[in-house]
Design a protein around this nucleic acid. Structure first.
Lengths: 340, 340
DNA sequence: TCGGTTTACGAAATCGGTTTCGTTTCGAGT
DNA sequence: ACTCGAAACGAAACCGATTTCGTAAACCGA
């Protein structure tokens, strides 16, 4: 009795496989309380578990959600993965994950591999450069974009309220007495998220009549640090306020500042996106725009489930849901780096 | 022509489905170069992709590897996931991931969910408390443990050479002039890894005739910090050397030290396990025992593949591989925190 | 009591590949 | 030319569930 099949269970319970199947999926066609109990008893006793492969074949549904993440080193991604995992599990789904490491080729490969593996739907945190492939995928199965949008549009997107978060950070710096604000970005990062934050930043400055600019650091290496050095020195004594556009930039900012000394230069205030665990340790605590990763994850899975249900329920593409942009509010963690 | 089936391809190419199947899996029964080309052409033209569910059902193999991680916030875990993802993809496998968040109940649930979903094998970074369930799982399908062992033994394990890494950190501190060494651990962490490192630490101390002890911090909150404070103050001026047993403890250490001042007290040297990106920024760089996550991941997948091949190839459990413990050497990153 | 409608359930088709087994073809050896 | 073995390929069974369709029993109002 190595591996039980549904027909074995049926035989033991004195019913047909169809009835056992109905029991397993508690289908509309109800059954006698007595039959139900008899089947339950046999399953309980034998420890029978239906084979997913057979179920998948017939029902053409796998309960597997494909997830493609751009950069798992980013705490945003790992927090997201935890949230997605929990939300999916709550719906009886498992996650198939792939990590592109910001390599478009790997991302493209992951796309086809996950689809071929039978994912019911896809969650994509794209690294860019695959807009057509992603659009094509979205034509074949439900896709929800995470954080980063693609050019073509027309695909669901879940993201943070970046504009308001930028405003919040500007608020914090202004309140701390900063007279001139810089948003630090990296040349290699040309993501829609960066662009959105940069736009919001300049809008916010002009709205408030504040001085400032977007400073783009050269990629890696000393050049960027040098540029940063100049920026800081150039405004020395002028109550400078810096915002790192993401955790990676903040890391580089921290390195650069470490060369200047162990604590913040007088009058310098800083703030950053992405709530790394170290943010409340460095500089006695860094004011941070924290995203609500758990809620974002829940919304993503929720939306994807809706689409999956539509696809498997309706006949064709009749009642397709209109693409939607979902913004999940984050919040500002006020810490010592923007105190007066 | 919405969805092609293998028989459609066969018809178009003028061969039987069996031949197409042989082509898809390039099976021993070779075929004419001409037939091969004809099939290839049809597949190329139609963009046909075999349905995984059907293949899985018949071959009872899914090319899916289940991964259960205890704590994704830990950079060790996320680096591992990236490595596993890459190694699996190289073998044409995808990852199904679950995250227990150090909750044994969630871990147990993930175990059954991944097995039910049809995983060919499991990679488990256990949080403890499920030793029997994991042993049971290992009896039903290939399992490789990651980093943390279970009591019963008899299951493959891939881990770092913790004893040597501990020795390396002790080396670094001793060379930096520390006279008394403390290994900082947390009360809540009773993992085999922590125990192994603690044992290695005391062994190493007595081997070298050095003074020192294992200090267990109370969980979270101020108590632990207080204890740490005392420890540091108690030895003030005595050339103390501290080792954080993992990244979490190091975080708490950093917090505690931040209360004492922005830079390390005179004569205090520190070192830690786990190479967070911040480790070369804090205190001008913290000497770190870095694990070779990429190699660990590769070994895990390699070993798991071996077992999967054995299971699907041999008839029964005749030629079962003997359980193996694989140690992957890490290395010490020497940084400013242990300079003289 | 009878026609009509539910309700509970079984028989058999079905999902789309893989695999076994058998047949045909082809080339080499004598 | 004839046998023999291997290579190339096809027919059909098979994996284990779900789903459709049909039927017998139960129920129900008139």
């Amino acid at each position: 009795m190595a591996q039980m099949r549904i027909k074995d269970i049926a035989a033991e319970a004195g019913v047909s496989p169809a009835t056992v199947s109905r029991y397993l999926n508690n289908r509309p066609g109800q059954m006698t309380e007595e039959t139900r109990a008899r089947i339950a008893a046999v399953i309980e006793r034998t420890g029978y578990r239906p084979r997913a492969a057979a179920r998948n074949l017939r029902s053409s549904r796998t309960n597997l959600i494909g997830v493609i993440l751009a950069d798992i080193a980013n705490p945003f991604s790992s927090a997201m993965l935890e949230g997605l995992s929990a939300s999916a599990a709550a719906r009886g789904c498992s996650l198939m994950t792939a990590i592109s490491g910001n390599d478009p080729a790997k991302e493209a490969e992951s796309l086809t591999r996950l689809i071929d593996a039978g994912a019911d739907g896809l969650v994509v945190n794209t690294c860019g450069g695959n807009d057509e492939a992603i659009a094509a995928a979205a034509g074949r199965l439900p896709v929800v974009l995470l954080d980063r949008d693609v050019a073509d549009g027309g695909i669901d997107l879940v993201t943070s309220n970046n504009r308001e978060l930028v405003a919040g950070l500007v608020d914090a710096l202004a309140a701390a007495g900063s007279e001139r604000l810089c948003l630090l970005t990296e040349a290699s990062d040309d993501s829609p998220v960066r662009r959105e934050r940069a736009e919001a930043f300049t809008d916010e400055l002009s709205r408030r009549g504040l001085a400032g600019e977007v400073v783009t650091l050269a990629d890696g290496g000393a050049t960027g640090v040098g540029r940063l050095d100049e920026t800081i020195r150039g405004y020395a004594g002028k109550r400078l306020g810096l915002i790192a556009v993401n955790g990676l930039v903040f890391l580089r900012l921290t390195e650069a500042l470490a060369q200047l000394g162990p604590s913040l230069p007088a009058g310098l205030k800083i703030a950053t996106f992405d709530d790394y665990p170290w943010n409340h340790v460095l500089f006695g605590g860094v004011t941070t725009a924290a995203q609500d990763t758990l809620t974002i994850a829940e919304r993503v899975v929720e939306r994807l489930s809706e689409r999956i249900d539509v696809v498997t329920t309706t006949v064709g593409d009749a009642a397709k849901l209109a693409p939607k942009r979902i913004e999940v509010p984050g919040h500002i963690e006020h810490r010592a780096s923007t105190s007066r």
